[in-house]
């Protein structure tokens, strides 16, 4: 088996993956666009990684490629990879956003490359910070060989990667989790109580589940580690880009101004808009997503909007 690992992305998630690969005894090949990220990898992992100069050099010979990049750059990276990828390579990604047309990242990989053995890391919990560590989560793939390959490539300190074959479900849990996190921030910004925020989180899950079922996901996935498991830390944590954005929107600050105060990409903004458009075109009602889109559009009286959501039916199908 080709045990060469390529990791694309040097942000906190990328670094957690690098660390898990090193702990499993590998020397991953790493590439990242940001010089700050590359410098950080150099300092943290020194000669335990091979820092490459190009995407091709990183990935062409790898048995497994792990993409830890934001949704905004995903399509371009996938297109570039498509030029030299081979069908026996395995690709996993942990991207939590969508591209135009509500295109999921695994779908993009399928649409622009020849690779079929695709996996999605979801519900992934990793300790933030410079010494980011992968703790556990879900690995979704339709291929058993992907499950085996990925498990052999990573060592997790305290936890495990749980297997699922519901690629769409696990992917959507992560993607829609960001939208729910914005809603939780909105609740905070509108000074709703903590219990109401908890109920809003349930509406967020229900929205994600309904959308998922339309796309072919299983409803149970949203009730498990990838769905509820992912949401619990988001609900408990007051930090996070999406939470911060929601809070400011709830306080009446305009989207652009709010985004200017936040470092890094807030993928939930595009996700909310794309999910809303997609749902409308498929006749699916997503009350919480609609509320978030209203907030992004600068609608006043967000507290009333959220209360309307809370009074609506909590429908899972």
């Amino acid at each position: 088996m080709n045990t060469e690992i390529a990791i694309v992305g040097t942000g906190p998630f990328g670094r957690a993956i690098i660390s898990a690969a090193i702990d499993a005894g590998h020397r991953p090949r790493v590439w990242g666009r940001s010089e700050t990220g590359r410098q950080c990898v150099r300092e943290l992992f020194d000669d335990r990684v091979t820092l490459c100069e190009s995407l091709e050099e990183t990935c062409a010979q790898a048995g497994m490629i792990c993409l830890a990049i934001p949704a905004s750059g995903f399509y371009d990276v996938a297109m570039a990879l498509g030029a030299w990828l081979m069908p026996d390579q395995v690709i996993v990604h942990g991207t939590r956003g969508v591209s135009e047309g509500f295109a999921r990242s695994s779908q993009i990989l399928r649409d622009v490359t020849c690779v079929r053995q695709i996996g999605v890391l979801g519900g992934v919990m990793f300790r933030q910070g410079n010494h980011a560590k992968l703790i556990g989560g879900m690995l979704a793939s339709r291929f058993d060989d992907v499950q085996t390959t990925v498990r052999a490539m990573f060592h997790l300190d305290a936890g495990r990667l749980h297997a699922s074959d519901d690629v769409i479900g696990v992917e959507l849990c992560g993607v829609m989790g960001h939208v729910t996190e914005i809603a939780l921030g909105l609740a905070e910004g509108c000074a709703l109580d903590l219990s109401s925020a908890g109920v809003l989180a349930a509406y967020g899950l229900a929205d994600a589940a309904r959308l998922g079922v339309v796309l072919g996901a299983r409803r149970e996935t949203f009730h498990g580690l990838a769905g509820v498991g992912e949401l619990l830390p988001r609900h408990g944590s007051a930090s996070g880009r999406h939470r911060a954005l929601g809070k400011q929107l709830g306080q009446g600050i305009a989207l652009e101004d709010a985004l200017n105060t936040i470092d890094g990409e807030v993928e939930g903004v595009m996700t909310a808009r794309e999910a809303h458009a997609f749902a409308r075109s498929h006749g699916v009602h997503l009350p919480l997503v609609e509320a978030v889109v209203l907030a992004l559009d600068g609608v006043d009286h967000m507290a009333d909007v959220l209360r309307t959501v809370l009074c609506g039916e909590l429908a899972w199908s």
Binding site: M79, G82, A83, M86, P87, V112, T113, C114, R116
Partner: peptide
């Protein structure tokens, strides 16, 4: 052909170790 019209070596779909 892959979805973008590039040639694919299909033997590698069924190659294992």
């Amino acid at each position: 052909l892959d979805p973008c019209g590039r040639h694919v070596d299909t033997t590698r779909y069924v190659t294992y170790q």
